[in-house]
Design a protein around this nucleic acid. Structure first.
Lengths: 219, 219
DNA sequence: CCGCATCCGGGGCGATACTG
DNA sequence: CAGTATCGCCCCGGATGCGG
């Protein structure tokens, strides 16, 4: 990117991050911790393959991304954030929170969606309201992509994949699941109005779901 | 800007903010509260005038910027942020904090500088360590641009212009002043190594300057 | 298959000139 | 003062090819 040529911290940040797709690549690496080139392509629908390669090179040169060549039997390349790259988490969180209102109406026609994009709002908005209770696991199925929200002793973790024996199952559109996760819709309202499907232990979910707040995604 | 077409809050934010110069225009409006077109041009050295006009139109359409035509005797246009635009303050703060390390070496050759760009670090890093003390005012002169840091009853305010009877005067390069404001350099070190000039009540400044911390700009 | 490199068309961007 | 007009150029998007 052409530099702004300004002795200002915001401009200096944008000199590094301002190129198209750069911050979304950071998003993917923050959400996945370590990803192959193909994983990144899949998490960034719409990116041109040459741009992804070029951005990764630039981010490596800037010291935000590390490239790890796996041992011969595996023969693949893993991309991950350096410490300096992980320091961008507050920036991505601020951007995500500011953009939440644009999610309210549901996806625009043609919008792509990936299940793991919801792991940020799950981490950010859910809180364990009964830290002394037993651990719970909630399986989430969004447009066929599945992940698991686990809660134990006050800590929330989100991981990809299927749960073995979840306490509850949540399934529906991205919009419906997001509305429930951010506290913008009550479970029953989302079921009737947004087609959300819920089964299992109702208490397990209600333990985590926040009360409605300003930053939420309302139906 | 061409939309990313992703149902993700970060991507939706970047659909609005991702164009070149857009976030720097927001920076100017956050720092100046209300600015004329010419003020914005002056605070954004390097921008092409057609781009500034186009960005302002887009930001107005997006509901982030309001254009106010002053009454006939004044005959000028004022641009300011809407409430929604001001909600970007956390985003700009996060970007500024992340970019601080890039300021450590001083300006790159050819870098432009404007005095009011320092008002953010002044607000962010200075704290009144003696809220019960008398009000103080410190005049700052950076490359000929002047502003005033005022402190009263624990609150820090920064404004452009000259102080009538400041308790202290601080003058020097952007790099030197920034290093002192962020706590990266002690006053004496900055004087000897960075050519900082200081006169007046030393206690007035030491009351505000933070102790060295990680996010500071070191010489 | 994975991780790119190359090629090409179109549009965003940069610089300057000009205007009510 | 607050823009519009114009014109290269380079970044970006989309497709294809290619070595390990």
């Amino acid at each position: 990117m052409r530099t702004y040529g300004q002795y200002c911290a915001v401009a200096k940040s944008l000199d590094v991050l301002g190129d198209r797709w750069t911050l979304l690549i950071i998003r993917e690496l923050l959400l996945t911790h370590a990803a192959r080139y193909t994983d990144l392509r899949n998490g960034l629908p719409g990116i041109a393959t040459n741009l992804l390669a070029e951005r990764l090179r630039e981010l490596e040169r800037a010291g935000l991304v590390a490239r790890e060549e796996a041992a011969p039997p595996i023969a693949t390349t893993l991309f991950s954030l350096t410490d300096r790259g992980r320091e961008l988490e507050p920036v991505l969180h601020a951007l995500g929170r500011w953009g939440l209102p644009y999610m309210a109406g549901g996806p625009a026609p043609g919008d792509a969606f990936r299940g793991h994009w919801l792991s940020w709002p799950a981490q950010e908005f859910l809180h364990d309201q009964a830290p002394d209770g037993p651990p719970v696991a909630i399986a989430v199925d969004v447009d066929g992509e599945e992940f698991v929200i686990e809660c134990s002793a006050g800590a929330i973790t989100v991981r990809d994949g299927r749960a073995e024996r979840p306490d509850a199952r949540l399934a529906g559109s991205p919009h419906a699941v997001l509305a429930v996760l951010t506290g913008g819709a009550q479970l029953d309202d989302a079921s009737s109005a947004l087609g959300l499907r819920f089964e299992g232990d109702r208490e397990a979910l209600l333990r985590l779901v926040p009360s409605p707040r300003l930053a939420s995604v309302r139906p």
